[in-house]
Design a protein around this nucleic acid. Structure first.
Length: 279
DNA sequence: ATGGTGACCTGACCGC
DNA sequence: TGCGGTCAGGTCACCA
């Protein structure tokens, strides 16, 4: 589930609910995520209750900042965050699932729960500026920012031989473009995913940056509907799935020319395209 | 510096 | 029903 739009949706939802609230304790049932969850998190809030100052997003990282430091949370491939209201805790509906690895207990009685079957996600803690953290300090621009422009992409692409799909999925070049959106944006821009980066013209970079923005913006809008199931997590794929043109559609017909959509692998990731519409 | 590959994990699904 | 194989929305670490 966690694409950039999904993380953005989670971020907005949490911001409304959690800013100003206080984390009074943290229960870690499973420390082994992508990196071990720092031990200090289990004891810290008991000494210094953590009042949440701000919740932001950088790339697919969720940053929950408190007066003492910042939680850096990544949902990996299968992570989910849910806010469990007090009512269902009292009613004892609160069965703990096999993959409910961490509970952040809030002073107001709610629980912020982190669930992640595959454990590719991460929960880290820093008492410094999170932007200088090793995981964040080399990230490229946000795709929806002005900084991510045709000129920027061209400048990053013109000397590189790697396939353009891999380039736009590289977080050091631009963040937040996952496999689905890379496929969709390249289709919308009429550019083959296998094109070598340095062969793209400035105009093509213009089309590609435009389409990346369009696709992500649409998905964020669709993600807005998932906000509703937020407290009531259903875990179903977002409503954007219905708007996909090529992703996951091998053998189906291209919405633009009606020929068959093809599938290949690029760098171990499934890639879908139309060989007539994309050049 | 760049590019290619494996690694981390569990669960769902497919064909036999 | 069970078993083995394959795939999955991410990204880091390592190698050449």
């Amino acid at each position: 589930m966690p694409e950039l739009p999904e993380v953005e949706t989670v971020c907005r939802g949490l911001k409304n609910e959690l800013v100003g609230e206080t984390i009074s304790s943290i229960l870690v049932r499973e420390h082994r995520l992508r990196w071990r969850i720092p031990e200090i998190l289990s004891t810290l809030p008991l000494v210094h209750p953590l009042k949440i100052r701000e919740i932001t997003r950088r790339a697919k990282y969720l940053l929950i900042s408190t007066q003492k430091g910042t939680l850096i949370i990544h949902l990996g491939m299968s992570g989910r965050i849910s806010l469990i209201p007090q009512s269902s805790i009292r009613k004892q509906n609160l069965a703990v699932g096999k993959h409910d690895h961490v509970d952040f207990n809030l002073k107001n009685g709610k629980i912020l729960r982190y669930t992640d079957p595959r454990r590719f996600g991460a929960i880290l803690w820093t008492e410094q500026d999170p932007y200088i953290h090793k995981l964040l300090n080399k990230l490229g621009p946000e795709p929806l920012s002005k900084e991510f422009s045709a000129h920027y992409l061209f400048q990053r692409a013109h000397h590189r031989k790697t396939m353009i799909k891999q380039l736009i999925m590289n977080a050091n070049v631009v963040v937040g473009v996952g496999n689905i959106y890379a496929n969709e944006a390249l289709f919308a821009a009429n550019i083959l995913p296998t094109r070598r980066s340095h062969t793209l013209s400035l105009m093509e970079c213009q089309r590609l940056t435009d389409k990346i923005k369009v696709v992500l913006e649409k998905a964020i809008k669709a993600g807005g509907t998932t906000l509703k199931d937020f407290a009531n997590p259903k875990g179903k794929p977002g409503y954007f799935v219905q708007k996909l043109s090529v992703y996951g559609k091998e053998g189906e017909l291209c919405p633009s020319c009606n020929k068959q959509i093809l599938a290949i692998r690029i760098g171990l990731r499934s890639t879908f395209y139309c060989k007539f519409c994309q050049v």
